[in-house]
Nucleic acid binder design. Sequence first.
DNA 1: GTAGGGTTAG
Length: 653
Amino acid sequence: MEAVTGPPLLLATQAISTLERCKTMPELRQVHAQIIKTNLVSHTFTVSKLISFCCFSGVSGGLNYAVSVFRRVQNPNPFIYFMLIKSLSESSNPLDSITLYAHMLTRLEDWKRVEFSLPSVIKACGRLNGLEEGKQIHGQILKTQFVFDPFVANAMIRMYFEVGEVDLARRMFDKMPERDVISWNSMITGYLRVGEIELARRLFDMMPDKDLVSYNAMIDGYGKSGKCELAEEIFGVTIRKDVKTWTSMISAYVLNYQPRKALDMFREMLSVGVNPDGPALVSVISAIADLGFVEEGKWIHKYVSSSGIEMNSGFIGSALIDMYAKCGHIENAYQVFRTISQNRNIGDWNSMISGLAIHGLGDESLEIFRDMEKMGIDPDEITFLGLLKACSHGGLVDDGKFCFKLMQEKYSIVPQVQHYGCIIDLLSRAGHLEDALRILWNMPIEPDVLAWKAILSASVKHGNVKIGEAAAFRAIELAPEDSSCYVLLSNIYAKMGRWDDVAKVRLMMKQKRVGKVPGCSSILVKGKVHVFLAGKAMDEKCTDEVLFKIEGIVSRLKLEGYKPDLTQVLLDVEEEGKECLLSLHSEKMALAFGLINIKNDALIHIVKNLRVCCDCHSFIKLVSKVYNRQIVVRDQNRFHHFENGFCSCKDSW
DNA sequence: GTAGGGTTAG
C-alpha cells in the first residue's frame, strides 16, 4: 500500500485532531494505523499525544493500548514515562507504576527531569498499601533531591495516611520548610479519614489561608462522623459554596437520618442557582428514598434524563433503583434496571436485589442473582445481604441456607455479623429456632443486638418464653438504649398474662431512662404529607374526625371477627383502656385518614417509622377486605401490600 | 505532578 505523504507538521496536526475526537477503541486503532502509515511514529510529539490520549481520555481499554504503544517507542522521553506512570498509579494495578518508575531510573539519569513522576509513584505506594516501597522512595528522595518540592512532600503526607502511618504523615508535615494550602488540606482530610476529628479541626482553625476544599472537607468529615451540628456550623460560615459544599451537607443529613433536611437543602441549592451534578443528585435521591417521596423522585429522574448525566455512570442508576423500590414502585425500579442493561455496575445489581427483598419478592431476587452470575459479575458482601434478606422476607428457608453456603464456598466471602444476623433471622422467623441458635452459638464473631433481636422476635411469635427471655436480656445488655428489646420482652410476658413482669420491664426502662420511640406514620393526600404520632395527629384539626372514623371501622371489623390483640400494649391498664391505646396506633390513624380522604379506587400508601404491630397488621388486612381497598404500608423493614384480606408478607415480618 | 462531594447494607 502506498504510504500517505505530506509535510509532517500538517499530517501530525491532522492526526492529532482526529485522535482527540475518538470515543471508542476501534476508532483509536484506526488513528494509530494512520499514524504508522504516515510514518508519524517517529514523530515524538505525535506519539506523546497518542499515549496521552490513551491514558487520560477514559476510552475503555485505553491504558493497555498505551502500554503496547509505549513498548515500541525507541527512546521514551521523561514526559512519556510520566504519563504512563501517572495513569498506572490510578489504575487497578498500581504496582506497574512503581515497576515502570524503577525502569525509568535505569534509563534516564537526569534526576531533575524524572522527579515530575514522583507524586504519582508515591500515590501508587499508598494505593498498594506499600509502606516499605513508600519508605524506600522517601529515602531515595532524601539522598537525591536537593531542592524541597512541595508536590512531593504533599503526596508523601497522603501516602502515609493511606498506609495508616498517621505519625509519619504528621512528622512529614511538621518538618516541611514551607507548607501550602494543599499540605494543610491533606493533613486535615487525612485526620478526618482516620477519625481524628478534633486534630483535623485544630489544624483547620490554625491554617492561615483556608480555601473551599478545607471547608468542604470539614463539613464532609463532620457529617461522616455523626456530628451534623458541627457540619452545619462550618457550612454556615462557608462563603462561595460550590456544588461539593452542598453535596457534603446534603449527604451529612442523609447519613444522620435527617432526609427531610437533606431535601430542603437540595431545594435551597437549586434556588441559589447551583446546578446539581451526579454526586449531588445521588445523595438527594437517597434522601428521597428514605422519605418515600416518589413524586420528587420522578422529578429527579426526569432531570437526570434531560441533563445529559449518564445513567450508567457512577451511582445514579443504583440510587434510582433503590429509590423506586423504597417508594413502593418496584415496576419503575425494574424499568431503570432494564434501561441500564449495558454496563451495569455491582451497585445496580445490589439495589435491584435488595429492592425486591423489601417487597418480599424472594424468587425474583434470586432470579436477578442468577442473571448476574450468568453475566460473570462477581457478587460482593452486599449482594448476599440482599439475597439473605430476600429469602428471609420471602420465607425461602432452603434458598437462604444455600446462599449462605454459596457466598463462603464459591465466592470466599467471609460472613460478617450482618450476614449472621440475616440467616439467624431467616431460620428463627420460619420457626427453626434450634438451627438458628446453633448458628448463633457457633459463629466466630460476637453476635450483635440484631442477631439476638431476631431470636427474641421469633420467640415472641412462637411463644417461647425461656429462650425469648434469655435473648432479651442479652440484647438489652448489648443495647440498653434500644427500647424495642424491652417492648418485645414485655410482649412475651403480656402474652402469658405475667403482668408483674411487664411492670418490672417498665420499671427497668424508667431506671435506665429508655424512652419508647413513638410510632409515627405518614400518608400523602393531594400532594400533602400528613403525619400521625401514636395517639394524635400532627395537624390537630383532623384528630377528631379520624378518631370517629376509627371507632366506626373497629365496630364494623368486629362484626367480621376482629378481636383487638391487647398483648400488644405495653402498659398494664384496664382492658378498655388498652383497646383505646391500641386504636390510637399511628398506622391506624393514618389509614382512617386515608379512607376518609382518598377516593375509592386509589391506593392508600402509608409509611411507618417502626415495625407494624401484630394487631395493626390483622386490622389492615381486614380493612383491605371489608372496605375493598388496596393498601401499601412501608415499615422499618419492608413493604406490606394488603389486598382482599391478605398481605404480601404472608404474615411473616 | 499534590488536597474536596455520591449508591446498594446497616
